[in-house]
Design a binder for these strands. Sequence first.
DNA 1: GTCCTCCGTCCTCTCGTACAACAAATTCTG
DNA 2: CAGAATTTGTTGTACGAGAGGACGGAGGAC
Lengths: 410, 410
Amino acid sequence: MTTRRRPGLGTNQELARRHNLGTVLRHVHGAGQISRAELTGLMGLNRSTIAALVNELEALGITERVPPVEGTPRQGAGRPSAGVRVADRGPFVIAVDLGVDRAVVASIGLGGRVLQRSEAPVRSDGEAWQVGAAVAGLIRCVVEEVPDAAQLVGIGISVPGLVRSSDGLIRLAPNLEWHDVSFGGIVLAALGLDVPVSIANDADLGALAEHVRGVAVGVDDLIYVSGNVGVGAGVITAGVRLEGAGGYAGEVGHLRFNPAGRECHCGNRGCWETEVGAHAIAEAIHCPLDKVAQLDEVLAGFGEPSPALRATGTALGHGLASIVNVFNPRQVVLGGYFRSLYALVGPEVEAGLADRALPAPLESVTLTLPGLGSDSSLMGAAEIALEPLFVDPVAALGTALVGVGARLAG
Amino acid sequence: MTTRRRPGLGTNQELARRHNLGTVLRHVHGAGQISRAELTGLMGLNRSTIAALVNELEALGITERVPPVEGTPRQGAGRPSAGVRVADRGPFVIAVDLGVDRAVVASIGLGGRVLQRSEAPVRSDGEAWQVGAAVAGLIRCVVEEVPDAAQLVGIGISVPGLVRSSDGLIRLAPNLEWHDVSFGGIVLAALGLDVPVSIANDADLGALAEHVRGVAVGVDDLIYVSGNVGVGAGVITAGVRLEGAGGYAGEVGHLRFNPAGRECHCGNRGCWETEVGAHAIAEAIHCPLDKVAQLDEVLAGFGEPSPALRATGTALGHGLASIVNVFNPRQVVLGGYFRSLYALVGPEVEAGLADRALPAPLESVTLTLPGLGSDSSLMGAAEIALEPLFVDPVAALGTALVGVGARLAG
DNA sequence: GTCCTCCGTCCTCTCGTACAACAAATTCTG
DNA sequence: CAGAATTTGTTGTACGAGAGGACGGAGGAC
């Protein structure tokens, strides 16, 4: 991820300092461990400047120094550079992935280190406050063994639905049957805490996670297409998340696909989702309706793809072609049950894409599976919760909470 | 437009200075004239800092000071603030809008001031070097009366086609029947000059121009949908142009629209372009084929819309719905012949959009006509040519040419 | 074993912005 | 109409951050 300047604002030297400190931390976070020499090269700053920044992070208790011996195997002459590593007992966040049938919660430190993890099934017809209470229980679980000195920076929540970016309100989550739910407030109330909460769409977070530490590291234009009962996409362009005016960008599931097709729950006819959505696929493979939420596992158990499944693969490819034409990504990551589907009918998907995409955007795009498996959205939730730390480490630690384990236990 | 930090780079203090100097100039450029007090407020810097920056721009001959008397009518007490204005005889650029049947060329100064303007018809089956020669002739025309002291910063060219962002190569321009044409080099060779040339897609530049000085000033998420024989879109998100990996993003003309529809020249069937493209509309209104390039004028002469035209309006709205769902813009600007079409069947377009878009993205979007009329792409071409000036004024002036009028005449 | 290369630390230098003080210009107020 | 209040331009100073050089240290290359 890249930060973006506010339009038209000037650069204060205090601002520059904050940016540099945050960027160093971002690099350490991205690599897990990195040498000072690498930081110097990456950031284009002087050795002495990098030293000052690293020392400050160390004084803040965020990073720790590593003797050069443990570093990467030497290459070339010269004195080996000391490493910078994420500190044990450093700041951490809580990531929540609200799925269609289960919730996964984890405490995650910088560098993407999962400290503890817990999950539980969630009733799809549950009220928001019930789900919130369940999530709060899981959160209590995953902070139990976190060291008391560690600071909780915030909570990140991944939701399968439309989330307003300005305030994190869940405008619509079809699978949960939620409308205008302020889930962040619900969880905080259930916990009795007050920490920053960030909420975003699951596909957006999948894209973010794959960009930071998944299969798309270094790729600045990518799309994460998520099959998750509904179909959505997270878009990263020039290294930045595409949000749109309200935060709803990437709703590719309701691209017009076949005006003569089936009715969609959105009220239209022939949305792409009616062809490659979970219900369509379940119907195509004669999967019982109560198994729709576990479509990924069902598909994974398949041996030979049926003709109907092949047709679905082609439809997936055709829809991806529209997406590739419109966004011109360098990589398309297929998440959710599209992973199993792609494993079954990959050739059909590729062929459908190649058949319908324009030559110019097609020539530079690759189709891949997520590098984080089914944890993309969870890791993405951790990323948005960590984000303030990279914008201004000092300020973020200022609002962070200490001793959360004890506070939630008592 | 907003600049964006390179991912992971550090902020040098020299860099900060350049950014601040460029940002001041960007504000002056955007407003035409602005007071130092306003700059102080906008950029969040100290009075003395702004004074230093303004003085430097003045020393560079880019801006000039305006006595406070001529400024805007006073409001409130206090000493009136001196104004900063774009200098006469300041730097300028050459903007080229390569249309389907004509080329428009203008010399344009900061603040969007058109110095001279010239245009000529272009044969649609012309070879690239022929068109290049014609454009070069127009360029000689528009620099004739430019003061000798004025510096030419660069040339910006708007092209109806796919342009590779890395080097400005025109990959494909269907209407001109060009493949992989390096038009920038051709024009420079015909001129015998060596200045920076920027080339981009016409819809992208339309979006840019409308964002900077058109109907979308202050709107950071907008889409300019251009009907121009082919159909394309320029997207601006969070104030930044959406380019994609190769620069081809925004090819909405080949979104799948009706798989049972007509064949498209791209090889597929039922692209959106086959329903709302110039040829489809011409057919619907029984317009002779040789008039397709002037479809805008033909439509403008229409009185009452025919049922076929109404259907086209609905199709336009339906397609826009997909675009709105995917990008979640705050404003959609209809350019090219969509202007006349919208004037005729606006209600159908609006209804089609409202019918098919998701409620959340729909509620914040507005449909408008361009504020710059048919000059959007031309002004956008000027913008990309001016861009280096806002990134680093000193460096951009360093590579600029002086006395271009005499040089091209002799 | 010696030289070379590269890195961390320390110190000083430079440069850009912030800040404070003063003068100037205009509006507000009595 | 005159003085107060307000806001701005200008100037000089202070602070802070990064650059650059000098030095010593650690390892590889020959």
